[in-house]
C-alpha cells in the first residue's frame, strides 16, 4: 500500500517515493511476522453442528513436539519449533521464521465433552474438535410441604 506521496510528483522523486514505500512495506511485513502484543499461536474458532472447531497454524512443528490438553474448561496448547539441526546462527542470510517454545491457554466458552475431544495435525495446521456436551435434562427437585 503506498504510504509516502510527494505533493507534486516530479520524475526525480518518483523513484524516491517508490523506494520509501518499499522500505515501509518491508517494515510492516517484519512486524506482522513477529505478531507484537499477540498471543502465540493465533487461533480461529468455528462453530459446527456438534461443537467447536479450533484451528491454529503451526508450520514445521513436529507432531511429537505438540501437546493439547484440557482441564476444567481450559484448553492448553503447548509446543516448540526448532531450527534445522546443525546450522549455526552465522550461516543464516535471512531469518524471519519464528522458533522457540510456546504455550497458550484458552477458556472454552461452553461445556465441552472433554473425553470426546480429538485433534489432528496436517500440513502444518492443527485442528482441535471440541464436541459440545449434550444439553442436560433439568432435574426436578421435589418441594415438600414444610407444614406437615
Amino acid at each position: 500500500m503506498p504510504v509516502f506521496r510527494w505533493g507534486q510528483a516530479w520524475d526525480p522523486f518518483h523513484d524516491l517515493e517508490r523506494e520509501v514505500d518499499r522500505l515501509l512495506a518491508s517494515v510492516s511485513i517484519s512486524f506482522s511476522g513477529l505478531r507484537f502484543g499477540r498471543e502465540y499461536p493465533p487461533v480461529n474458532v468455528y462453530e459446527v453442528t456438534d461443537g467447536l472447531l479450533l484451528i491454529a497454524e503451526l508450520p514445521g512443528t513436529r507432531p511429537e513436539d505438540l501437546e493439547v490438553f484440557v482441564t476444567d474448561g481450559v484448553l492448553t496448547l503447548k509446543g516448540k519449533r526448532t531450527g534445522p539441526d546443525g546450522v549455526p546462527d552465522d550461516r543464516y542470510r535471512r531469518q524471519e521464521r519464528l522458533r522457540g517454545v510456546w504455550q497458550r491457554s484458552l477458556t472454552l466458552p461452553e461445556r465441552i465433552q472433554e473425553d470426546q475431544m480429538s485433534a489432528e495435525f496436517t500440513n502444518g495446521v492443527l485442528k482441535v474438535r471440541l464436541p459440545k456436551a449434550p444439553a442436560t435434562i433439568a432435574r426436578q427437585i421435589p418441594v415438600s410441604d414444610g407444614n406437615t
Binding site: Y46, V48, E57
Partner: peptide, 11 residues
C-alpha cells in the same frame, strides 16, 4: 465443514 461458522478470528 460446510456448516462451520466463524465465531472468533485471530488470523
Amino acid at each position: 465443514p460446510a456448516d462451520a461458522r466463524l465465531i472468533h478470528q485471530e488470523y
